[in-house]
Write a protein that binds this DNA or RNA. Structure first.
Lengths: 153, 153
DNA sequence: CTTAACCCTCTAGTAAGCTAGAGACTCTAA
DNA sequence: TTAGAGTCTCTAGCTTACTAGAGGGTTAAG
C-alpha cells in the first residue's frame, strides 16, 4: 500500500481516460479544492496528478450519486488529508452524517413501500374494477400516505 | 373523503400560508405543470386552487427531499391525474422507480456502514495510536472500500 | 373613491455542477 | 522545425429550482 517508488505522475488527459471523468470536470473539481493533495504543477504549468487521484475521483463520483454535494464530499476529504487528526470534530461530523443517511434510508424505504403498494394494488384489482373510477385509487393511496407521513414529521 | 360540496377555492396566498410553500414556488410548480388539475383561473386571472393542492404540494415536497426531480414527480402525478388508466405503462414505470429506489437504499446503507466503520475504528484506536500515522487510517478505509465497491458495479 | 393588500406577468439573477469554445502555450515525433 | 496533440486560462452558457423586483391590474374596507 505504501509506495516508495517515485510513481509516474499522470497528466490530466490520462486521468480522464482512466477515471472516465471528463477533463473539464477534473479541472472543475480541482478548482473547487477537491483534488488538492494529489496534484502539483509541472514547469510548464501542466497539472500532474499522482495515481491516488483515481481513488479520489471514484469516491467523489460515488458520493455524488448518493446525493452528497461537492461541498460535503470536500469536508470528508479534507479530514482524510489532515495529518493532524481532528478526531473529535470529525467524529461528530460523521455521526451527524450517519444520522442523515439513516433518515434518508428510512424515507426511501417508505417511498418504496408506497410504490410497491401501488403495484400490488394493481394486481389485486382487475383493470375493469379500476376503470370504473374517476381517479386511479392506487396513486391516491400513495399520495395520502405520503401526506400522512409528512404531517407526522 | 369524497366532497360533493363546492368547496371554496383557495387563492395562491392562502395556499402558500397553509402549505408553507412560497408563492413564487407555487407559481413555478404550476408553470411546470405540476399543479394543473387543481388550479383554474378567476375572471380576473387569479389562480384558484382546490384544497387538494395541499396534498399535492406536500407530496411534491417530500418527493423532492428524497431526490426526485420535479420531472419525475410530474410523471407520477400525471398518472394519478389520468382518468383513462394507462396501467401497463405506468406499472412498468413504477417498477423501474422501485428498482432505482432500492439501489439507492443499498448504496446508502453501504455508505452508512462505511461511516460507522470509521467511527468504531476511532473507538478502537486510542488517539495516540492514530496520531503516529501520517494519514488517518480510518478514512483511508472508507475511501478504499468505496473504490472497491465501485469497481464491482 | 381611494388605499392597502392581493394578485398578475415578465425579466433577470442565484447556486451548483458542469460543458463549450477561444486564443495561446508546450511537448513530441518526423 | 514544424505539425499536431495535449494543455493552459478565461469567458460564457446550460440546467434545475428557485427568488427578487418592476410595473401594473384587482378586490375589499372605509
Amino acid at each position: 500500500m505504501i509506495t516508495f517508488a517515485p510513481e509516474k505522475a499522470l497528466q490530466i488527459g490520462e486521468v480522464a481516460a482512466l477515471s472516465e471523468v471528463p477533463i473539464k470536470t477534473i479541472r472543475y473539481d480541482e478548482e473547487q479544492g477537491l483534488l488538492t493533495p494529489t496534484v502539483r504543477r509541472s514547469k510548464a504549468n501542466y497539472r500532474l496528478f499522482e495515481a491516488s487521484v483515481l481513488q479520489r475521483l471514484a469516491f467523489i463520483k460515488r458520493s455524488q450519486s448518493l446525493g452528497l454535494s461537492l461541498r460535503e464530499i470536500q469536508d470528508i476529504l479534507t479530514v482524510h488529508d489532515q495529518v493532524q487528526l481532528p478526531c473529535e470534530d470529525v467524529k461528530q461530523n460523521l455521526q451527524k452524517k450517519v444520522q442523515q443517511v439513516t433518515k434518508q434510508i428510512e424515507a426511501l424505504q417508505l417511498l418504496r413501500s408506497e410504490l410497491q403498494g401501488v403495484l400490488s394494488g394493481w394486481q389485486d384489482h382487475p383493470p375493469a374494477a379500476i376503470a370504473a373510477r374517476t381517479i386511479c385509487p392506487n396513486l391516491e393511496a400513495v399520495i395520502d400516505t405520503a401526506v400522512a407521513q409528512d404531517s407526522n414529521t
